[in-house]
């Protein structure tokens, strides 16, 4: 029994790392643009397919294709911002969040349908030569490809924090997320900040997608589930710190896997959602207590 628990703790932590990684991007677009992108999970899905096809068609290892996935989805993020979210950000904050929710909901439907059309509804997993490799400590299996998800999440969080606190651009980004009007009066090109923040958010989702298709699997319908995970994590952690978000992701993964040991696997999602509702009820007005990256 304790063996089983230890094993599920490890799996939970590893999966939780990916939750954190997905949530990083969501926190960025939410924190900076005040745009709630419920198509975030669909961006993850696209990133996962990108990595999958890069592997199958060109034999690119998913770690080699990681920068490619990042760049392509960064570009896609710019496109989405210019075609859609730019119009949403023209309105004041309250309307903005509501409209972004609706617009991205439409976008999610469209992306999912297109994925079914072009990628088929099949589940896909990247199976590399090292996919089944794992190391074992105290007879607990740690699969390498899943460990990679956690590592990428931690690296991404540290890089983001470094950019937010150590670069002029990052400081401008934090300023914009606090108050875009004052940021504009400071001489910051707010639209450019928005565009880049949104694009990075999309690229982060895609990176998470790479890790998902390597360690787990992707299919066109996974979007909503991942969006919910990211939302839960952001609500748990707030928008305060990037490290905090990864920690909250790991916590969520842990809770889920422990609940599947104790309550039953078919209720792991439900446990997470109920936990989410409980946490949300302690913050009924949301999570803008502090600005992103502060």
């Amino acid at each position: 029994m304790s063996q089983l628990i230890a094993q599920s703790i490890v799996s939970g932590v590893l999966l939780g790392g990916v939750y954190g990684l997905v949530a990083l991007g969501l926190a960025l677009s939410f924190g900076v643009l005040r745009v709630l992108n419920v198509a975030h999970g669909e961006l993850l899905m696209l990133g996962g397919y990108l990595a999958f096809f890069a592997f199958r068609e060109w034999g690119l290892d998913p770690f080699v294709s990681l920068p490619l996935v990042f760049v392509v989805m960064f570009g896609f993020g710019v496109l989405l911002y210019l075609c859609l979210f730019r119009f949403v950000t023209r309105t004041e904050t309250h309307t903005r969040i509501k409209n972004s929710l609706l617009v991205s909901f439409g976008l999610a439907l469209v992306l999912q349908a297109l994925a079914v059309r072009f990628f088929t509804a099949d589940e896909r997993t990247i199976s590399t030569a090292y996919s089944s490799e794992a190391f074992t400590i105290w007879s607990i299996r740690v699969p390498m490809v899943r460990l990679a998800g956690l590592v990428v999440a931690i690296v991404a969080a540290f890089v983001l924090e470094w950019v937010l606190h150590r670069t002029r651009f990052g400081k401008a980004l934090r300023a914009t997320s606090e108050d875009w009007t004052r940021a504009a009066l400071t001489g910051i090109d707010v639209r450019r900040i928005y565009q880049i923040a949104f694009a990075v958010s999309a690229a982060l989702a895609a990176i998470a997608g790479s890790m998902v298709s390597l360690g787990y699997s992707v299919s066109p319908s996974i979007g909503l589930g991942w969006t919910l995970k990211a939302l839960i994590v952001v609500v748990l952690a707030g928008l305060g710190s990037m490290r905090g978000i990864v920690v909250a992701g790991v916590a969520l993964g842990l809770v889920e896997s422990l609940s599947s040991v104790w309550i039953g696997g078919q209720y792991r999602e439900v446990t997470a959602l109920v936990l989410f509702l409980i946490v949300l009820s302690f913050r009924p007005l949301g999570f803008f207590g502090r600005a992103a990256g502060a």
């Binding site: 919910l228 959602l273 007005l285």
Partner: peptide, 28 residues
């Protein structure tokens, strides 16, 4: 009573979570 304490999008997100939880439970 608890759900409507959430305002705006938090209500939207909260009800979405509730809907998904109920869906999974019904399936189980």
């Amino acid at each position: 009573i608890p759900m409507l304490r959430f305002r705006d999008i938090y209500f939207a997100i909260g009800t979405l979570a509730l809907g998904v939880a109920v869906y999974i439970t019904a399936g189980n």
